[in-house]
């Protein structure tokens, strides 16, 4: 028996919004510690890693580890049926081929349940090596979303370069070029609005705007976003979901042609 209850359905709704454009289907691995999801998009350019800890749920019970393959489009449709303030409960029997979502309105007057078929998914689990990153940048998530949106109008790819002075995002294309520089915040009054850069070595990498724009769908989950970069390894974009877990996106950089 698996049962997980959240007081606010909005968290789950936002999580789904944050992954459904990248992934069409994914496996939710549930065990004692909570729910984990790890999946690459079809072209193996990006990876989503989601953790929802058991202690973040209002109620959490998982007798046997189960993996539930879900069609994220269908799941998103179901979650759209829930009000933001509704309580949501996910339920599944051991070895079941369906999962049930129960939504309860705050005054308990309306209870709805939706059952969804699970899928038989064949998924690869990737080992993500612990990496020391040369640069980590923390900044307001809305600011990052804005930069990605603005720069994607100029070109398909965006260069992120992190130096002592700050971090620079740039793009260029047919209409011209765009540069956005952010300096480290001098005095931190509000932590949520701060730009904090930790750097051992300067790094410059190029990424596809399209994917960054998919990642920023997670903006509403967290006021801050953390970017971690090292030369020639994937970028990590992390959103911490308050009190329950995090969502991490990995994105392979664009590389210069060598032989062609």
């Amino acid at each position: 028996m698996f049962e997980a209850r959240l007081l606010r359905s909005s968290i789950l709704k936002k999580v789904l919004e944050a992954i459904k454009d990248l992934l069409t289907q994914a496996t939710f691995d549930c065990d004692d510690n909570g729910i984990q999801l790890q999946a690459m998009d079809n072209s193996h350019v990006s990876l989503v890693s989601l953790t929802l800890r058991a202690d973040g749920f209002d109620k959490y019970r998982c007798d046997r580890n189960i993996s539930m393959g879900m069609n994220l489009g269908s799941m998103s449709k179901i979650l759209k049926c829930a009000g933001d303030k509704d309580t949501v409960t996910m339920k599944a029997q051991d070895n079941a081929d369906t999962v049930t979502f129960v939504f309860e309105s705050p005054n308990q007057e309306k209870v709805s349940d939706y059952e969804m078929k699970l899928m038989n998914l064949d998924l690869e689990h990737l080992g993500i090596p612990e990496t020391e990153y040369s640069c980590t940048i923390r900044m307001p998530s809305a600011e990052f979303a804005r930069i990605c949106r603005d720069l994607s109008q100029f070109g398909e790819s965006m260069v992120i370069s992190c130096t002592k002075e700050g971090v620079k995002f740039s793009a260029s294309g047919d209409i011209g070029s765009a540069n956005v520089k952010l300096a480290q915040t001098a005095s931190i009054d509000k932590e949520e609005e701060a730009v904090v850069i930790e750097m051992d070595e300067p790094v410059t990498l190029t990424f596809a705007c399209q994917y960054l724009n998919y990642f920023t769908k997670a903006t509403s989950l967290s006021p801050q976003v953390q970017l971690s970069m090292s030369a020639d390894v994937p970028l990590v974009v992390e959103y911490r979901i308050p009190d329950i877990g995090h969502i991490r996106y990995y994105l392979a950089p664009k590389i210069e042609e060598d032989d062609s």
Partner: peptide
């Protein structure tokens, strides 16, 4: 198409730990 950079893939960076071939079918 010849100009510009190519998108890299994650396969080279992360190692496949295990493939779960249809755990449900097995079940």
């Amino acid at each position: 198409a010849r100009t510009g950079t190519t998108q890299g893939r994650l396969d080279g960076f992360f190692k496949v730990l295990s493939t779960t071939p249809n755990p449900k079918r097995k079940a």
